[in-house]
Design a binder for these strands. Structure first.
Lengths: 133, 133
DNA sequence: AGAGTGATTGACGTTAACGTCAGCGTAACG
DNA sequence: CGTTACGCTGACGTTAACGTCAATCACTCT
């Protein structure tokens, strides 16, 4: 009984242009059950939900999570799927991910500080040009 | 019995125990020129410098950098190697890495906030057990 | 109807980062 | 002095995350 139908459907090409990924990547994510595009005949049509998931996937990747890690927590963000078992499991996993991410944040601060210090040291020796790119 | 000759030199097994990696990993890193252990006959002996580098390697990996990315910036941390060309290149790369890491931290903050919000939402629906880390 | 253009489905190739296994060397223990 | 235990060197296997290519459809334009 899902009546929540989003009118904004995007083709695979529109998705690729919008999110800078290849068709292969989107099909791969579908095969791995991270995305669930509708079909118009044989062609894929990506929904608003697919786009939300894709953003989370790409973000997760940037943080170094595997696609499988990501897949297991994506359900948490599904506002509609009221299936308790799936979502509750996703919640537990999300707590672990959260801890990992906060630890990562802390370590990142340290690493940034150290890197800055090292660059400052190098600068003292006059080894660094005056630009930062 | 174990001979602890110098505190500056560690065997491969001591390294594995200390940093929770396998011998294969350390040999692999050497092959990829990220580590440069000395040799006692045929056996590897890892120096203080190797350990410093290994820590940076493992940290870099946690942030999602590739070994090649890491290798190119490791020279920056070598206090002794006063070779200007190598170090200056490392500095430039380090500036880019720094930008990436700061962007990553910013995005991480957003992601953490969103995840917390989503977990709070789930909690409202009573889907979450009463523990939190 | 024929020619393009673009999407789809296998199927195989590729890269990074190791794992695993075989075969050999050697240093120490009993 | 034999044998266990660990280390070394290839060499091949593995997994994740796609890339690439060929053959097949589907739709559009002329």
């Amino acid at each position: 009984m899902k009546s929540e139908q989003s009118p904004d459907l995007m083709t695979i090409r529109e998705m690729c242009d919008a999110y800078d990924v290849t068709p292969r990547t989107l099909r791969f994510y579908e095969a791995k059950e991270l995305l669930f595009p509708q079909r118009m005949g044989t062609k894929r049509l990506f929904t608003r939900r697919d786009r939300a998931r894709l953003k989370l996937i790409l973000r997760g990747k940037r943080f170094g999570f595997s696609l499988e890690d990501i897949r297991q927590t994506l359900d948490l963000y599904d506002r509609d799927g009221s299936d308790t078992a799936q979502r509750q499991r996703a919640c537990e996993l999300a707590y672990e991910r959260l801890a990992v991410m906060e630890a990562q944040r802390a370590e990142l601060d340290v690493a940034i500080a150290e890197l800055k210090a090292e660059l400052a040291h190098a600068k003292d020796k006059g080894l660094v040009p005056s630009h930062a790119a």
